[in-house]
Design a protein around this nucleic acid. Structure first.
Lengths: 355, 355
DNA sequence: GACCATCATGTAATCGGTTTCAGAAGAAGG
DNA sequence: CCTTCTTCTGAAACCGATTACATGATGGTC
């Protein structure tokens, strides 16, 4: 006891000496602020998290002490005590894809407003995380919640008992009972087809994403509905993978057709732009010889040549809605199982009546 | 003491009962694993972080207990004890911009390999973070390190005593003494001009980013060097802001010129694509009437019409190098003040000899 | 003046790991 | 058989906050 007292006295002297020499020696803790303000650590904590319950003079003294010491809260300590992580994990198939990064932007905006960090995990990263590596992140100890942007993940991943609340955005995983925030993909497909059939097109090709992809499936449904509404059969389809390259490759296939379509609806803008590039280089004119419609309205589509007719979906907004849904889930508040955001047709110059 | 003993016995019973009923009652802690394995918590911790120092039979028993309980480490608790955050903060001007998200992708890859999270903060987010909001993140308690991708921030932000190690990537901030990982911007400008002068161009316009931007400044220097090497004067410049829109706007200005340039070098691909769009819509042909060179080699540039001649820089690689530099800094290892990554000229179809 | 409610604050337990230090067990050497 | 050294493990302190509970002061009421 005596030894202890002596020791801590020495220790304190030492600390003060250090403070005089180098300010960076050791960041101040809540206890240091308390000492300086002549109150307990509990009171400082209260000033920090709930100032209203602290008497005015005390509060001012504490605030002054905080300013004087340059104190900043240790977030990790708070998180440990409050049994939270302070962050939400976003699972994206490809961080480098602008489509996803715009959704992330919306997510980040809402999270930051609620004091939460955005943690990003690239599910198909190079040197990459296998499913088991992703699973290691799906713990309450790693994130307070998860937003899934990758529909190709296994639902089993999310069934571990310690998995935090999950929300799906944009794409979704079959058999995963987590709320979904989606664009109205079917309606988008339908709108695109209605536009084309309205122009008089009857041979319409659908350039899709990967066959099993949830976006592909629902957009395809809309396409078929649109075709039927115009009294047409389901029509041809060609499978791509959402990349510029696969759009370009599709052009070669089309150029080689005996009876090529007069219009193509693409499941995203990037394939549409790749397709136009391939078609034009193959000697066709867009839209005179063949019309092209995209999906997403990425920024670039307005500056393509010709500017692209497309289905617009508001990606940042989708991200915001997903983040808000997750926040509700984390707080144990009710959250709709499925939220569908409207899309709209944007007519530019890549579509015209068939020759 | 007795009361305490009785209480914890009841508590334990209760816990076991809960475990039988719902597995989600309470995640196991290291203590639970220790009890099951018949060892102390310290030993379990050692198995987790440094298995080599634990005797084989003990280790196996612990590993079995871990598997049986489904234990997962509480990362927050570990971080608190180890005085770290387990994450690195990236300050990006615009998360939705593919240019930055590809750098992020490289950063994320390296960080994940080292067990660190990537935290993303959008410096110009909507509803946005003022400088003071950003400053609140620049604390050792919020991040183990910071990678700055935004050259427009105030250097003073990073001077707070509690600011963690900082590395700048891609752009840089004047007066901030933090290591920089950059593309060879000047060389890129020089290469572009050499290519154009080699084709015979003599009236070359430089479409720049914002005047004070660090990329603009160094690319401009390269452009001027290139022009001088060809015996030409510094030449005209037009200031844009790296956006598609500003490229498009520049086209209007060029179309209105009495003596328009025969070639334009743009400080990024997006402006170049916007520019081409504007020029073509204004009736000029690219490259027959006017040549255009971009910078960055974004994916889209290969599929522009015409495909864009540009300067290629490897963004993911830049991100990886920046992350590695930061890791060195965090570990107190030496780290070069400036690292310059090579760029190269990619000739496609948007450049040709002047008419 | 005694009693009670209210408010402000302090004390100490707590979150869940890691790590220092010390001690036990076993091996090696004299 | 007794040291001495090594290897392994456990007890307890520690990281830095939050918060349940206790306490003291104050003011109002009868």
């Amino acid at each position: 006891m005596v030894y202890n007292g002596v020791f801590s006295a020495i220790h304190r002297e030492n600390r003060i000496a250090q403070d005089r020499v180098t300010r960076t020696a050791r960041p101040p803790r809540i206890q240091d602020v308390a000492r300086l303000a002549g109150v307990s650590a509990a009171t400082v904590s209260r000033v920090l998290s709930n100032p209203a319950i602290v008497a005015e003079p005390t509060r001012l003294a504490v605030e002054e002490a905080i300013a004087e010491t340059g104190y900043t809260l240790n977030v990790t300590a708070r998180n440990l005590r409050q049994q939270q992580v302070g962050g939400v994990l976003a699972l994206v198939p490809n961080l480098a894809n602008p489509f996803f990064s715009q959704i992330l932007s919306g997510i980040a905006e809402v999270l930051r407003g609620n004091g939460l960090n955005l943690l990003v995990l690239d599910t198909t990263a190079r040197g990459g995380a296998g499913p088991e590596a992703i699973g290691a992140y799906l713990t309450r100890s790693r994130a307070d919640g998860v937003i899934v942007l990758d529909g190709s993940l296994q639902p089993a991943l999310f069934r571990q008992p310690s998995c935090p609340p999950v929300v799906q955005a944009c794409e979704w995983i079959g058999g995963l009972p987590a709320p979904r925030v989606l664009a109205d993909n079917a309606e988008g497909g339908r709108l695109a087809i209605r536009h084309l059939t309205g122009l008089g097109h009857r041979r319409i090709l659908h350039l899709t994403g990967p066959e099993e992809n949830s976006l592909t499936v629902s957009r395809r449904a809309g396409v078929c509905a649109g075709l039927r509404a115009a009294g047409l059969a389901d029509g041809a389809l060609l499978a791509g993978d959402f990349s510029l390259r696969s759009g370009h490759a599709a052009a070669q296939r089309i150029l080689a057709m005996a009876e090529p379509p007069t219009a193509v609806f693409c499941d995203n803008d990037e394939m549409a732009i790749g397709l136009i590039n391939g078609l034009v280089q193959g000697g066709l004119r867009v839209p005179e010889d063949i019309s092209v419609v995209g999906f997403d309205n990425i920024e670039m589509s307005a500056y393509a040549l010709p500017p692209l007719t497309t289905i617009r979906q508001h990606r940042a907004r989708l991200g915001r809605h997903a983040a808000n849904a997750l926040l509700a889930l984390i707080d144990g508040k009710p959250c709709p199982e499925e939220e569908i955001l409207p899309v709209e047709l944007l007519v530019r110059a890549s579509t015209a009546a068939p020759a």
